[in-house]
């Protein structure tokens, strides 16, 4: 009973916090209402007894929103704590698309004949879910993770404003390197 009430309460909070993202007029508030929405979803997943997935959702999303708030503030070029600004763009099309998607998904949920439970859940539901989702493609998924990390590093390296020739000179022999401010390892 308590679980049911908690689940529905979390669901309502998650949706409201998600809507608040577009209603509030500051970027910090928008980022962190999204974080609240995700935390509620993470707690719901905990209630579904997918403990690992639920806790990791909370972990990732809070960290992500902390970073996102920083980037939003950095790239918008205005002091957004002071300047109230609208969080929506191209209102009419966005509204039409989101209502259409919602109706489609809700219809799907209501029309789908959900199966009744057969058997009992396995001991380790997280491992079972992983097997079910990825199965024999686990190696591919693991490799994709590494490729993504390498892509990020490569992207940063390509985008870096100053390369090693700027730091160490044309013959790479200048020591200590010319940096705006020295780093902690003394390279």
């Amino acid at each position: 009973m308590i679980t049911h009430v908690a689940f529905w309460a979390l669901a309502v909070i998650a949706v409201l916090a998600g809507a608040a993202v577009f209603i509030v007029n500051s970027m910090a508030r928008a980022s962190y209402s999204l974080a609240v929405s995700f935390i509620c979803v993470g707690l719901q997943v905990l209630l579904l007894q997918q403990n690992y997935v639920g806790v990791v959702t909370i972990l990732m999303m809070v960290m992500e929103m902390a970073i996102m708030a920083v980037y939003m503030v950095m790239f918008m070029g205005m002091n957004p704590a002071l300047m109230p600004m609208s969080m929506v763009h191209d209102k009419r099309h966005a509204l039409a698309v989101s209502i259409a998607v919602f109706v489609l998904l809700a219809t799907g949920v209501l029309l789908e004949p959900w199966p009744a439970r057969r058997g009992t859940p396995p001991d380790d539901v997280t491992a079972a879910l992983g097997e079910e989702l990825m199965g024999p493609k686990m190696l591919v998924m693991a490799a994709v993770g590494v490729v993504m990390a390498v892509t990020i590093v490569a992207g940063v390296v390509l985008a870096a404003h100053r390369g090693r020739y700027d730091r160490f000179g044309d013959d790479l022999r200048r020591r200590p390197a010319r940096d705006p401010q020295p780093g902690g390892v003394g390279r």
């Binding site: 070029g77 205005m78 002091n79 002071l82 300047m83 109230p84």
Partner: peptide
Amino acid sequence: MAPAGIPLASG
């Protein structure tokens, strides 16, 4: 462009 009386910063 000066909410709460504080002008916004220029870039």
